[in-house]
Amino acid sequence: MIQSMTGFGKSLIQIPNKKITVELKSLNSKNFDLNARIPSQYREKELDLRNIISNSLGRGKVDLSIYVEYTGEQTSTNVNTEVVKNYMDQLRGLVNASEIELLKMAIKMPDSLKTERDEIDDEEFKDIEKAVKEALKDINSFRNDEGKALEKDLKLRITNIQNLLEEVIKIDPDRVDAVRERLRKGIAEIKEQADENRFEQEIVYYIEKFDITEEKVRLDNHLDYFQKTLNAKDSNGRKLAFISQEIGREINTIGSKSNYAPMQQLVVQMKDELEKIKEQILNVL
């Protein structure tokens, strides 16, 4: 079963004096790329959180956000009283204003507020780890649901290509007859001017050059392999991308060899389905 790289997960924990909210968002990416927006007191644990998230999500561009809301009397930010008083003294000499107005101006100046760096204890970090793992469960559930939708669409596209391939196989005898008819007309025009042996060699080369038997077989095998990979237990977007490249190679070769308008029209439709497949695969884990 395939899994999408797009997802969202959220978890909330309540600890003494704090409410901590963890949010995870992920988008498609070739590798694991984490952008962490977390309070400064948790920075020392960022590597541990990165490893937990990487092991769970595998690939993707991931945004981790941790929000802390103080629910008790405790606060991490305090007024820097001496600095504010100094600003007010300086401002008195510059403007004619009330104490309240001076205070409003001073409190906006640099260093008027100071943030005390809280030390994170082991128990608190365990609670944060638990919240991150809960958010990971949430985001993985989201990814699985998205993966089911992707799988359904990919199977539809592959089935469409298989049906178009059957049409190609069906009209191939007509294509061969059309090529032979063109050859016959060409022969009638230049028969008297050409060396017979040389001419026969050119005909054999021409027919072999436009034969698509191998391409039809290989394309059918690639389509079957794609289906099996979709139904595999593990999600493997890179493998599906590689198979889709091989599918595209065979479709392009059939198109270049067909030399027959009805078949080329089918090839165009196959290419259109394949492009949609490639777009979807970009989001497969």
Rank of each mutant, 00 (worst) to 15 (best):
P110M: 02
V83W: 02
D138Q: 11
K170V: 11
K130H: 15
L94P: 01
I158W: 00
D111G: 01
K130V: 01
G147P: 04
Q193A: 15
K108M: 15
L154C: 03
L136K: 09
R143P: 08
R182V: 02
N86L: 10
I100F: 10
V83M: 13
S98V: 07
M109D: 02
K133Y: 05
Y87P: 02
E116S: 13
E82V: 10
E82P: 01
I120Q: 00
Q193H: 09
Q90P: 00
M88P: 06
D121F: 03
N140A: 08
D122R: 01
D118P: 07
L102Q: 02
L150Q: 10
E116G: 06
V168G: 00
K126S: 14
K108N: 15
L91S: 02
E192H: 04
A97N: 09
D145I: 06
E189R: 06
L150E: 09
E134D: 15
V176E: 13
K185A: 11
V95F: 14
E151G: 12
A178N: 12
D111R: 12
I187E: 07
A106N: 02
P173V: 05
L103P: 00
K108I: 04
A97E: 12
G147F: 02
N144I: 11
D145H: 08
N86H: 10
L156K: 10
T115Y: 01
L164D: 14
R143W: 09
L113V: 13
L156A: 07
D89H: 07
N96I: 09
S141D: 14
L94N: 05
K137M: 09
L113G: 00
K170Q: 14
D127H: 08
D127I: 01
L156V: 05
K126N: 07
K126P: 04
F142L: 09
I169M: 12
D138F: 07
L183A: 02
E134T: 11
D172F: 11
K191Q: 12
N96V: 04
S112H: 05
N160I: 00
E129I: 07
N140Q: 11
E192N: 15
I139K: 03
D118R: 08
T159Y: 05
P173M: 08
K137C: 00
L136W: 05
E124R: 03
K155Y: 08
S112G: 04
P173E: 10
E99T: 06
D121C: 03
E129S: 13
K85H: 12
K114W: 09
I100M: 05
L150H: 05
L150K: 05
A131K: 08
A135D: 13
E116A: 03
R175A: 13
I139H: 06
R117A: 08
D89R: 12
I169E: 15
K152A: 07
M105R: 09
L154F: 08
E101A: 13
K114N: 13
A135C: 03
K126G: 07
I100T: 12
I171T: 11
V132Q: 09
N163C: 09
E82G: 02
M105V: 04
K170W: 12
K133N: 13
D172C: 01
V179G: 00
A178D: 15
D118L: 09
V84W: 10
Y87W: 13
Y87E: 11
T115A: 06
A178I: 03
M105H: 04
D145F: 05
D111A: 10
E192G: 08
